[in-house]
Nucleic acid binder design. Structure first.
Lengths: 224, 224
DNA sequence: CACACCCTGACAGTTTATGTCAGGGTCAAG
DNA sequence: CTTGACCCTGACATAAACTGTCAGGGTGTG
């Protein structure tokens, strides 16, 4: 059945973030290259984020392509409200992302359903005098965390004394309004936590750290 | 092309929450009833939440069936973290819903992608001495809000003085740890806000209120 | 420039889908 | 219990869609 092969193509491309040629897909799925070209045209006409480039191959546009999902009303409440919370608590980049994601989900709902959410009966707002601006370093830290890139950070402790160190960023935790960066400190060879608002500067090292038993976030959780 | 008709069937059923007969779909899509039966079997084999009952017709299982969506990494961070926040801030029902929704999304990610999120590099936790238990009335209020059902509430003001009134629940707002119910008060003929933790009791009236200009949540927002 | 690869039309042959017919089952209302 | 509405599936002839081969044209990279 052709429809299964269309989904199979998307699955293989989700697995393979590198460009993949029509020839490779054709062999894997036991069809001709011409059929793959046809399937790609069909997928694109259906709106799938697939792009092909001569000399390169096919790949999914960056991001995460989720298949159809089914949520009950409570679950959708949780998603929408969660993004409301983020839009007032995260930094600008994360807040904008929450708005975008929320819009995508709402756009996918039907008009009658949308009323339950788009008119926003559920809200998260901050009291103006309580919420400090999230650190501008939050997003670059989040990015380094995702990339698993070591950071050189300048940190001020309670006495305003500065120190620098090389860390592996492992996790970010929000305690109400305080963001805490959990890291493996290379110079101390141990886990350390840093308040993001006390990090004065970060410098990306370009140095990717490997997965290493004993130095992962779940290892830190085991110490608690 | 068949795949388009399969999606068309799902779209029509999203629009129509009542059961719809194969005959109706067949006429609408200009195919035979037998073809609709085949299409339904195909959709079910693909996991679509479609159920058919003799004498009744076909309908989608309750909930919200979202089509394939594409999120960039920041957007997915926002979604996952938002649900983390909800799981520590909402009442038990909303928190459970957040956990379930989060699990569905993570299950839909590929293993390589899942590592970015399932190992939870982003967290939301509460400091144990700061978070009061969310009111047990939160979920029934949320349900009434969704159903647009008038409530009879017993409210205690700052002086512990009780009063009862009939309200139209219009919106729920979370200020950090305080949930505020925005309502149209039928006896005062005006908007009123009630802290959920000061609501002693709610009694569902079974009375559905219509959409009425001047008495909606966005009308309240206009007064600010 | 050469190589890798995307892209599309045409056509004959192959495969899948469709509509009709027949027969069996469930649910709800009277 | 009966009746009507509607789901469900197999069989078969016919129609439609799909496939592979061939040909020709375009883009990106080293």
């Amino acid at each position: 059945m052709r429809i299964l092969r269309l989904f199979a193509i998307l699955d293989r491309m989700r697995v393979n973030r590198r460009p993949v040629s029509a020839e490779t897909l054709a062999q894997a799925l036991d069809v001709s290259v011409r059929t793959i070209y046809r399937d790609m045209a069909t997928l694109q006409s259906m709106g799938a984020p697939v792009r092909g480039e001569g000399g390169i191959g096919y790949q999914l546009e960056k991001g995460y392509f989720l298949p159809p999902l089914h949520f009950d009303p409570d679950e959708l409440d949780a998603i929408i409200l969660g993004m409301q919370l983020i839009s007032v608590r995260g930094d600008e980049q994360l807040a904008n992302a929450a708005v975008r994601a929320s819009a995508k989900i709402k756009a996918a709902l039907l008009e009658g359903e949308r009323d339950n959410f788009a008119t926003s009966p559920l809200h998260a707002v901050s009291m103006p005098d309580e919420v400090p601006a999230a650190s501008p370093l939050l997003s670059p830290i989040r990015l380094a965390l995702r990339e698993r890139m070591r950071l050189n950070i300048t940190y001020k402790d309670l006495k305003e004394k500065s120190s620098t160190r090389i860390i592996r960023p492992l996790g970010l935790t929000v305690f109400d309004r305080v963001w805490l960066l959990t890291a493996w400190c290379e110079s101390k060879s141990d886990f350390r936590n840093f308040r993001v608002d006390r990090i004065a500067e970060i410098i990306k090292t370009g140095d990717i750290f490997p997965r290493e038993t004993g130095k992962e976030f779940h290892d830190f959780l085991q110490t608690l």
